[in-house]
Simulated scan of single mutants.
Amino acid sequence: MKYSKEFKEEALKLSDEIGLKKAAQQLGIQYYTLADWRKDRKAALSRPKLSDSEADKRIRELERENAELRKANDILKDALGFFAKDRKK
């Protein structure tokens, strides 16, 4: 089942107030579903927030790294083709 963002937020607030098990029972959802939402919230809060310029810089770095890895992958594919062709002889 798909729950709205608002429902999840309210469910988490309730679980903070009355506890995970009681909140899950009261809302009629699985305990583990609510526990997973809590874990996801904790992970999101522990991630550092980047400013727009920092995020743009990080995106450029990742795009550059991605391009380098694609080149390396193409080189390895070519080398594999070369050696495979050599083995057929």
Rank of each mutant, 00 (worst) to 15 (best):
K2W: 05
W37R: 06
K88T: 06
D86P: 00
R64T: 14
E17I: 05
K89I: 14
A72I: 09
A24P: 06
L34M: 09
L27W: 02
G81I: 01
D16N: 14
G81D: 08
A23H: 14
S15Y: 01
E68W: 03
A44D: 13
D86W: 01
R60A: 11
L80A: 11
L45D: 15
D74L: 07
A84V: 05
S46W: 01
I59H: 06
K13I: 07
Y3F: 03
A55H: 02
D78E: 13
D16I: 04
L80G: 08
A67Y: 00
D36G: 02
E65M: 08
R47N: 11
S51W: 04
K77F: 12
K8S: 10
R38C: 00
T33F: 07
K88A: 13
R41V: 10
S4I: 00
Y32M: 12
A11I: 05
A67P: 00
S4V: 01
Q26V: 10
A72N: 11
L50G: 00
L12P: 06
Q26L: 15
K5W: 07
A55M: 09
A23K: 07
S51L: 01
R70P: 02
L62F: 02
I18K: 02
K89T: 03
S46D: 07
E17D: 12
G19Y: 07
K2V: 13
Y31N: 08
L34D: 11
K85V: 04
L34K: 09
I59W: 05
E63D: 14
D74K: 12
D74V: 02
T33A: 11
E65D: 02
L76Y: 11
D36H: 06
S4L: 02
L80S: 12
L76Q: 09
K57G: 07
I75S: 13
K5N: 15
E63C: 01
K5V: 09
A67C: 01
Q30F: 05
E17T: 03
D52S: 00
R70G: 03
D56W: 03
R58S: 13
L34T: 07
K49I: 04
G81V: 10
E63Q: 13
R87Q: 12
S15K: 06
Y31M: 08
D40R: 15
A55K: 05
L45I: 12
K57S: 09
K39Q: 11
D52V: 02
G28S: 05
S53T: 06
I59A: 11
K22M: 13
I29D: 06
K5M: 12
P48F: 03
I29L: 03
K13V: 04
L12Q: 03
W37A: 09
E6T: 14
L45F: 14
E63A: 06
A35Y: 12
K85I: 07
K57R: 03
E65G: 03
K89V: 12
K39I: 01
E6W: 02
K85D: 13
R87I: 10
R70M: 13
D56F: 05
Y32D: 06
G19D: 10
A55S: 08
R38N: 10
I75R: 15
K49C: 01
D78A: 15
D36A: 08
L50I: 00
R64S: 15
R38A: 08
W37Y: 11
